[in-house]
Structures are given as structure tokens and as C-alpha cells.
Design a protein around this nucleic acid. Structure first.
Lengths: 336, 336
DNA sequence: TTCCGGATTGACAACGTTGTATAGTCCTCA
DNA sequence: TGAGGACTATACAACGTTGTCAATCCGGAA
């Protein structure tokens, strides 16, 4: 049984509340008592009981981060950055994997977590705008490209523009048959829709003809999907000479298929991805990509949440949309 | 202010305790009252207050998983699997990144977490046996190859043997100059030491001469370290014809360097890694590796922890060592 | 009828913490 | 010298649960 305030108080010869005041750095405690209490704390190895504290204050010091999947390097990286940012506020981050399942996401937003959480940073995959709004009372910050003007603060890059940038880069290389890998049919696949829109816009802007047959659909955004999609594209009579993949994993899968079939990258087919995960910096060839400013996204997400959690008037502001910069990273897979 | 037992009790016209009994599925509650209470619960959308419950029961339903870094695909994968396994027991997993810093690991073991945790699954990187023993009272399961016969349950593969298997595979291909990448000098780098020992054993077993100059040291186990180490090895007058890398990331980095310098893999140099991360299945060439049975490791870790957490007599058993199988996965980087 | 025993239910006291109200104490200033 | 104020420290009551134990109810047995 670990020592409580009571034990410390007894040992220091003061009241329970005074110990509490010392622990919380309350101002009006004389140096003498403070020292005496501190000595008792150290001697007993007192650690405040989180549960009791939370019961009183309704604050747990825990925020949740919900991402579709940790296995995906992009999200793993993001998680790491957010944990770092939260640490500076001495928050603990509870990471949650939704696997993109609507049911789980819904539970999450409804606050059906068994464990009390002060706030939520959420990268939704399955849930659309209105459903998100149905959220409970936990402050929330949305991540990623899903919903603009949703019910909560939102941090994201301009997804459509970024996709267009990637495609423009391919067109700028003189490629005339630019394929895309990563389209998704279901309505909630907003990321895919937006990147497709950006791709299409850039294609038409370059004076190329928009050809739906050059757009490969995928189930998920994994290497295997990219590999399969590329194989399908290679079945067609005329091989494309460039491919924009909606994320880096798809691109790495696609490159794997190309090389396997003896197609040279980038000489025969240029490939660009999206996310700038570390893998792409060491693959062969190294992978051109669009790099969102992830560090900034993480920091902003935590900052926004902090503001909501504070009891200043800012906590009541209407939801904000924060747009973060991205940049094109040209590597071997397009630069040769 | 969310409804509490009190509110439900008032609405159902029963005592607070009866509601509690219903919520906890206590046996002696008549069907009639149970139904009435349940109706009230549903109507009010009552959710038990985790903090209060934890204060009473001293159980939070949260376990922590501490890994060196989430960015590393191996740990990310492991984390995902453990979360899955924990879910079946309706535990929540708090994932913690130690960055391999001794200080952080020490805090963790000492139970200096601000948030109460029922148990800990820990993959130590910096801490050695005795220090781990200094742990608090939270039940702990150790992961990875660090300590045998340590102070807590331990799940791991036979690291040395697995390294020997990988090296034997290279020798079996007829390679005569088999290098290693991943050695580390500091005493706490047990993983590196064990893999090195396995490598050396296999080398000598194959009748090759042990040459320390073929062993490259690294700071960390990342792609960049592998790339740099390989570059260093290539500086030497005679190029090795095979490399055993102590994990897959090192191997991917090494391959990158080899291809960059026009060395063919596996024709000129065969490369094998360790961990079987997904990246290696789609790299070019695909990566031969040693695959620990990660799913089993995850499941066992959670099971062992559950046993410790239970109040059966099993909770008091002496620490157990559980050895998990591994297997050699031969792919293009050694098979040609 | 009266009493017994099991099945139900309820009152009360914790768990360890912090906010509120209050009681001292000591100093300063009129 | 006394009043007022600043500063310290304390007592007490919550926060929402659950364990303990006693109270109540019911049907059937004596």
C-alpha cells in the first residue's frame, strides 16, 4: 500500500491539506513547513494518486491520439512527434488504433472510452463530417485531410494542391501518360478523392487528356496494394511513363513491381509518392514525394488542444482550420 | 456533468448500490429491478466513472507498453499486435517511447508514471538486469533479448541461435567473406552482443576465420547507420561477399549503399537482415531475414501479464522464461 | 400461525485527493 | 494600543465508486 497524503502529513506533523499545497506548489506555505513536508515526501517516496486526483479535478493528464494504423510509417512518425509535443505539457498520450473501422471511430468520438481522457487528437478515416459532430464533450482536434469546416479544430495540408504539385512535377518532366494509383470508391475516402482531384486538375492544366483508365483503385494504402495496382496498369496495351501514387507505401509497392518486370525507374516510368516516410529515403531508387510538415502538424495539434483544454476564453472560440505547408522532394525515382 | 450512479438510482427508484450491482453484473438482482435499472442506465446514457472506480478497486484497466521507438517498424508492428491481444481482455494499452534512454527506462520501472497502470510490458534497451529488478510493484513482462533469468517474466526468441542461423545461411551459399553490421560497444547493448556471438559461432563453425575487421559498429539500428557501415566496409581492400545485418533496417540501408555503388545484390554481395519487417517484402531486392514469431510473442506477453494480474496463486510464481520460435526467410537478397 | 433461511436490497464507510470556509498568527499602520 | 490586513494552516465536505454488513422480503416448513 503506497503512502498517501495522510502518511506524509502525519510524518511532517502538518495537516493533509498543507501537504497537498506543497505538492501542488501552492504559494502560501512558509519555507519552514515546506521543507519539512518535502523531507517527509522524499523519505516516504510519496507519489500522488492519479485516480483520486482525477476524481477531484476531472482532469487526467491523458490525451488520446487515434490513428488508423500504427504500422503505417506515416502515422507511426506522427505519433512519435505528437508524444514529444505532449510531453512538453506533461501530458501522457494514449494511442489508439481504429483500423479505419467506422464503428471504432464512432465509439471514440462518442467518448465511449473506458478511461477518462482530457482531449482527443483524431485522424479519421471512415467517419464523415456530421458524424464527427455528434461527438461528446471531449475537446477534439482533427488531423489529416478529411473535413474542412468540421465541428472541431483541424490541422492539415492542402491535400488537393499537394497532389497537383506532385502531378505537375511529373508533367514537367515531359511525361505524357501519367497514371495514378490510390483512388478509392467509397464515399468516405476523402483523402483519395482529394488527391485524385488534384491529380486531375494538374493533368488537365498540362493539356493532357484525362483518362480514367490510367487511374488505379486500391483497397488500402499499403505496399501490396501499390504492387498489385501497378501490375494491373502494366497489363494495358500502352505503358504509362509516370505514376503518381497517393502515398509512399503505394509507390514503394509500385516500384517493386516495375523493377521486377524489368521496367526501369525513372527512365521508363517515373514514380512519385506522398508523405515522405523514411523508407523512401533509402529505397532503390530513392523516392520522390510530397512532404507535409509533420513536425509542425504535431505541434499545432497539441497546441490547439491545449487551448481548448485551458479555461481561458479561447477555449470557446469557433473551430479553427489550420493549413500547414508541404513541399516537393525530388529524388531518384523521378530525377534519374 | 455526466450522470452518475446516483442519478440512475434516483430514476430507477432503487439504491445506488443496486445500480452498481447491475452494472457489474452481480448475481443476486431480480430480473425486474435489473430491467428497470438497465432502462434508466440507457435513458441517461450512464457511463461508469473510470477514476472513481480505479480509486476504489486499485485497477485501471490500463497496461503500459514501453518500447525504444515507435518509428521502427518492428516495434510498431509489435505494438499493434499487443494492443490487439490486450483488447480481448478489454485492457487499454498506453504506449510509451523510451528512445533507449536509461533515465526514462528507469523512471518507467520505478513506476514513476503519473498515471496508474496495472502492468507493464517492457522492451528495455538501456537497462541491465539488476536495475530492472529495482522495479516497483507493478507486474512486468520483459520483451526482447535482453535479460535471461531477470526479475520478471520474459518472452523472447533465442537471439544468439537466430543470428547463427542467419550466418549459417550465408556460409551455406558458399560465401567465404561474411561481414556483420550492427555491433555496438556499450555494455548494455545486449541484443548486439548476442547477435554478434551467434554470428561468430557460425563463422567458426563453418571453418572460416574470424576477422574483427569484418564487423561494423553502428550507433543505432537505423537505415542510415546500415548505409554508412556498408560504405565503410566497402572502403576495405577486399570486398566481403556477404553481410549479416543485425536488423532489417540496417540491411535495407546497406543494400542501398551497395546498389548505389554498382555492387550487385545478391550476386556480388548477399545480404540478410533480422526481424522480417514488411519493408523487406517489397524492397528491391526483397530481403532475406530471420522472422521471430511476433504474433506469438505479443500474445504470450499479454497472457503472462494477465496471469500476474489475476489474484490466483499463479500470480506469485517465480519469473518465467518463455522462448519463442523463429524461422529463416529466404528472399532475393540472398537467393538470387 | 410462527419462524427460518435464502434471495434481494440498502445504509454507510471507505478509496486519496482538492476546493471552500475558517481560524489563527503576526505584522503594520493609524 | 487596537484595528485591519496579509499570510499560514486547518477542518470539512465533496468527487463517484464498491465492499461490508445489516435489513427486508418472500415462501415454505414446523
Amino acid at each position: 500500500m503506497p503512502p498517501g497524503l495522510k502518511d506524509v502529513a502525519a510524518r511532517a506533523g502538518v495537516s493533509i491539506k498543507t501537504v497537498s499545497n506543497v505538492v501542488n506548489g501552492y504559494t502560501h506555505v512558509s519555507a519552514g513547513t515546506r521543507a519539512r513536508v518535502q523531507a517527509a515526501i522524499d523519505a516516504l517516496g510519496y507519489i500522488p494518486n492519479a485516480a483520486a486526483r482525477q476524481l477531484r479535478t476531472r482532469r487526467s493528464g491523458v490525451i488520446a491520439l487515434a490513428v488508423p494504423e500504427l504500422q503505417s510509417p506515416y502515422f507511426a512518425e506522427m505519433a512519435g512527434l505528437i508524444v514529444q509535443a505532449a510531453e512538453r505539457r506533461s501530458w501522457t498520450v494514449l494511442i489508439d488504433q481504429t483500423d479505419g473501422q467506422a464503428e471504432r471511430e464512432r465509439n471514440l468520438v462518442a467518448g465511449l472510452r473506458r478511461h477518462a481522457i482530457d482531449g482527443l487528437i483524431f485522424s479519421p478515416l471512415a467517419l464523415a463530417g456530421e458524424e464527427l459532430a455528434r461527438g461528446g464533450d471531449t475537446p477534439m482536434v482533427l488531423l489529416g485531410e478529411r473535413v474542412w469546416h468540421g465541428p472541431a479544430d483541424h490541422v492539415a495540408i492542402d491535400n488537393t494542391e499537394a497532389a497537383a504539385d506532385a502531378t505537375r512535377h511529373l508533367c514537367g518532366l515531359g511525361r505524357r501518360s501519367v497514371a495514378a494509383i490510390g483512388a478509392q470508391d467509397f464515399a468516405s475516402a476523402v483523402t483519395a478523392h482529394q488527391r485524385l482531384a488534384g491529380y486531375r486538375a494538374a493533368i488537365e492544366e498540362a493539356g493532357l487528356t484525362w483518362d480514367p483508365r490510367l487511374v488505379a483503385r486500391v483497397e488500402r494504402f499499403h505496399r501490396a496494394d501499390g504492387a498489385a495496382a501497378m501490375a494491373a496498369l502494366l497489363q494495358r496495351p500502352r505503358r504509362p511513363d509516370a505514376v503518381f501514387c497517393f502515398n509512399d507505401l503505394l509507390a514503394l509497392g509500385a516500384i517493386r513491381t516495375l523493377l521486377e518486370q524489368g521496367v526501369r525507374v525513372p527512365e521508363d516510368v517515373a514514380v512519385i509518392g506522398f508523405d515522405d516516410i523514411e523508407d523512401g529515403r533509402f529505397s532503390t531508387p530513392t523516392l520522390s514525394t510530397v512532404a507535409p510538415d509533420t513536425a509542425r502538424i504535431a505541434r499545432l495539434a497539441v497546441d490547439l488542444l491545449a487551448e481548448r483544454l485551458g479555461d481561458g476564453p479561447a477555449a470557446l472560440n469557433p473551430p479553427r482550420e489550420v493549413r500547414v505547408a508541404h513541399r516537393l522532394v525530388v529524388r531518384e525515382s523521378t530525377a534519374g
